[in-house]
């Protein structure tokens, strides 16, 4: 029986040593609170949560930020836009990433909880409507056609129903899940609160949508621009005609707003009292706005016009 004790002790000490070896750098440094004030090093904790669409931008920002302020411990979850706001309303997070503007009921709940917030734009995303590359008939879609495609009307839709001359093959739909901000945004600008086609395959994982659309010539789907960029060899993007001629999503058309109405800003919502009370949070959010454009582009999103970043920065500075 002794040897079991040794084994157990060995395991515990072994893992303790391993942890000490790996985590040593950080824990030593933050152990002596206050002594690292020189060179303007900040300490503190900043917590966030929210949209998984925004997560890559946030991760990139946190990555370069932690190189600059290693003592500020920023963490962010990916519970989805709605899930993030739930925690934001509960006061558990300092910032909440969102791939759509805040909803009225969420704003009301925040007011009730006494939480004031500021909206910060991180970048732009273009909802890309895509079909399979084997689909050789769709050249562009108007907004009306898009709505006709996606709204449930009780019939099984074929491509011929949408425009004459297109094949009489049933359309297969792929959409992000109803919990995602991407769905909410599509719902707002295209579906206009009508029900989405019942036959649509919904998935929270955009890679599932990509695979589904590649797999069938009769399929159509939509998701963030970054997913189209990564799969442009295997997918065909559909130019959208909003009345001013068909426009394809690209860095230029999304930033300029030409790719209307499917180009959307992605946000993070900041708790005002975090800015005024937590100097680490204030520092991090300022850093975020200053670097959001570059980081958004680095991970496949589009930079917002500079004046938007400037305005957000001003709003945050005013809170400090």
């Amino acid at each position: 029986m002794k040897s079991i004790k040794y084994l157990a002790m060995g395991t515990i000490f072994g893992s303790a040593l391993f942890l000490a070896a790996c985590g040593g750098g950080e824990s030593n440094a933050s152990g002596d609170t206050g002594s690292s004030e020189e060179a303007g090093a900040l300490e503190g904790q900043v917590r966030g949560d929210g949209s998984s669409t925004v997560a890559p931008i946030m991760e990139a920002i946190v990555e370069i930020y932690s190189a600059e302020q290693p003592e500020v411990r920023v963490s962010s979850g990916v519970s989805g836009t709605g899930g993030g706001f739930e925690k934001f309303i509960a006061g558990e997070t300092d910032f909440s990433n969102a791939s759509r503007p805040i909803k009225d009921e969420e704003a009301a709940a925040l007011e009730e909880a006494g939480i004031e917030y500021t909206e910060v734009v991180l970048g732009y995303d273009g909802l890309s409507v895509v079909v399979s590359q084997d689909n050789d008939w769709v050249d562009y879609l108007t907004l009306d056609e898009l709505k006709k495609l996606w709204v449930e009307d009780g019939t099984e839709k074929t491509w011929a129903d949408i425009r004459e001359g297109w094949p009489e093959e049933p359309v297969e739909f792929y959409s992000p899940g109803t919990d995602s901000g991407t769905y909410d945004y599509f719902n707002e600008v295209i579906l206009e609160d009508e029900d989405i086609v019942r036959s649509a395959t919904l998935s929270e994982d955009d890679n599932v949508l990509v695979q589904g659309i590649i797999g069938s010539p009769n399929s159509i789907g939509y998701f963030g621009y970054a997913y189209y960029l990564e799969n442009q060899d295997t997918l065909k993007v559909v130019p959208i005609d909003n009345g001013n001629g068909p426009i394809e999503p690209s860095n230029e058309t999304i930033e300029s707003g030409e790719y209307e109405p499917l180009s959307r800003p992605v946000f993070t919502y900041v708790n005002n009292s975090s800015i005024s009370e937590n100097s680490a949070a204030a520092n991090f959010i300022t850093f975020t706005i200053n670097n959001a454009g570059d980081m958004a582009e680095a991970v496949g999103y589009v930079r917002a016009p500079q004046n938007i970043y400037d305005e957000d920065l001003e709003a945050i500075e005013a809170l400090k």
Binding site: C22, G23, E26, S27, S30, G31, R47, G48, D49, A55, M58, E59, V62, E63, S66, P70, R73, V74, S75, S76, G77, V78, S79, G83, K87, E92
Partner: peptide, 12 residues
């Protein structure tokens, strides 16, 4: 529970 995934430090 809401465990974050973006996190560039180790717990103390």
């Amino acid at each position: 529970i809401g465990i974050p995934t973006i996190l560039m430090f180790t717990p103390n």
